[in-house]
Write a protein that binds this DNA or RNA. Structure first.
Lengths: 338, 338
DNA sequence: CTGTTAGCGCCTTCAT
DNA sequence: ATGAAGGCGCTAACAG
């Protein structure tokens, strides 16, 4: 691979001239420029990314960090990713997806810092060593979702209005006459589950409805969303429990609930109402009956977070901003016939 | 940010000792090692990725290249991505998603080479400047899908058996008595559309069935898959065309077909059979009736391609391999009642 | 407008 | 088992 010096020699100019032809940082006479470019092309030369990064101390790469164990993008992550990519695309940034396994990760993370200018962090948890680490290293950071309480006013994040969204669907179900609602929540270690649970409980409290402790269940790591939804729904339907409505953490979970309901001969929405925090698939409308959802605008969460991070990189001030992306409730056939 | 020299000074050792503590490339006495690590930790030191890459001429990053205009991952891309990530994860590689917009891209690609050891290239097209460019630059490359004919025996790729898969569902439909089949194919500039069309035509030819030229339609860039499926299906159903079966390029297209059929009062599969090249969503089973699919094993395509690329990087020989990931047909209610 | 010099932070010989 | 010196390919500061 040819380097800058080779081009310079053949073109009969200095390295810095070649450098500036490519960076356009200072004016170069037309003839020289053309000659250099022609020769660069002949030599198949392109400036080396890493050498350049080393010199300018900037990579124009941002990292997208998922939890390592999960290494599996969901439909919702896909929306986030599309939003992030789209913004990167606009601003000429590249995106590094960071998913090193735990055993390898310890070794690699230990060996080197990440080759990024800043990071977007997904699925924050209540105890999140990733955040602690980044803060310590002073890596520009934007979290998608609510950060752990300790860090809430120390870093930038982009989040939905999860409390009021959950409160909203709680109230909606109550207004339809439901009193015994099961909430199949996100895993308990995720920050998002706290906010949604809070909103849900507020709605019940305002209506003066008591809540049994087993009416909020957290997804565990073992089963898939479909399985979890299926099993929990099956359980309560078989017990002939008083539950008349189920809120699920995502569409796949709702799918599991649908299957259980069908098997047990429960009809949706007559015998059982279902509302989901949507994971943005286009298929919610294809459920029979179509699934009522809280739409989270994943793509917007993604693009806003990228925008925020890149802004932060440019201003270079450690600003602490929070952006709330509104959800909207999409009422369909799964919670009421009317 | 502390650098190696800082650590060396405080620890009272040389730079190379510090270097070797981190790289473990030569034995270091236990006491020195511990002291260096302690001080590195105190100083919050981590080796700089770019400086390291520059010196060793390796980044341990592989690129995932999508066409820039599209900058939108589909469900199928998501499966590929998960497969690729999983393999990267296992082998300690990072993944760079490359999607620079055309205007920006020209500038940036022109400015620097890509910061990757090799690339996986998605959605190859019949005329694909990306491939030409990579070959010229001698960048290790693996294509997912069939490369343009000129390059088929010059580079490694991972692909489905699209010809025989298409032939298989063609034959299946014919065996069910269908003679007039509409094929809503991928865009005409994609290599995949050629293979599938070929297979489809083989099945017809063997059965001695004539094909009208308008029975293979290529998706255009303007409309989404759902729209395209909807519009084309609507057209032929309104025309009261003789078509009795439709093959779609993906599940969303099939969704559009379902909608058109419902609106026009056609019943699936009685009045119209539908089979899709699946994009791997879990929702195909939720269609009413459940959608028959050719399953493409996207995740395997992804992991095989990453494996192949990384192998190639390690051996350093420009091997040319092809891996065919088998598809399998999943028969459900959308093509026959039995 | 163009050339020269000195790093960027690491790794890699070659010494000892 | 450890040090010292040179170089990876580029940019930046200073010169002219």
């Amino acid at each position: 691979m040819a380097k800058m010096e080779d081009v310079a020699k053949v073109a009969g100019v200095s390295k810095s001239t070649v450098s500036n032809v490519f960076s356009e940082k200072r004016p170069i006479s037309k003839e020289v420029k053309e000659r250099v470019l022609r020769i660069a092309n002949e030599l198949n030369y392109k400036p080396n990314y890493w050498a350049r990064s080393l010199a300018v101390k900037e990579t124009r790469i941002i990292g997208l960090n998922m939890q390592a164990e999960k290494v599996k993008f969901s439909q919702f992550h896909l929306s986030l990713l599309n939003g992030v990519l789209n913004e990167c695309y606009k601003q000429g940034y590249r995106l590094l997806v960071n998913t090193l396994s735990d055993n390898y990760k310890n070794k690699v993370e230990f060996q080197t810092s990440d080759p990024v200018d800043g990071e977007i962090l997904l699925d924050p948890e209540i105890e999140d060593p990733r955040i602690v680490g980044r803060m310590k290293q002073n890596i520009p950071l934007v979290v998608i979702g609510k950060p752990p309480q300790t860090y809430e006013d120390k870093l930038s994040y982009v989040d939905n209005n999860n409390v009021s969204a959950a409160e909203g669907i709680g109230k909606h179900l109550i207004s339809l006459g439901h009193k015994d609602i099961l909430f199949l929540n996100a895993p308990s270690f995720r920050t998002v589950s706290m906010d949604r649970e809070l909103g849900f409980k507020i709605s019940l409290k305002e209506a003066g409805i008591e809540l049994d402790s087993d009416q909020v269940v957290y997804k565990d790591k073992k089963s898939s969303s479909v399985e979890f939804g299926y099993e929990k729904a099956k359980e309560i339907l078989i017990q002939n429990n008083k539950i008349t409505a189920i809120i699920t953490d995502n569409d796949k979970m709702a799918l599991g609930v649908y299957r259980a309901a069908e098997e047990e001969g429960y009809s949706i929405p007559n015998d059982l109402a279902v509302i989901s925090f949507s994971d943005d698939s286009v298929y919610a409308t294809e459920f029979s009956p179509p699934l009522s959802c809280v739409h989270l605008n994943g793509e917007q969460l993604g693009s806003e977070s990228a925008k925020l991070l890149i802004d932060q990189l440019h201003t270079n001030k450690p600003l602490v901003k929070r952006i709330i992306v509104p959800t909207h409730f999409e009422k369909r056939g799964s919670c009421s016939n009317s």
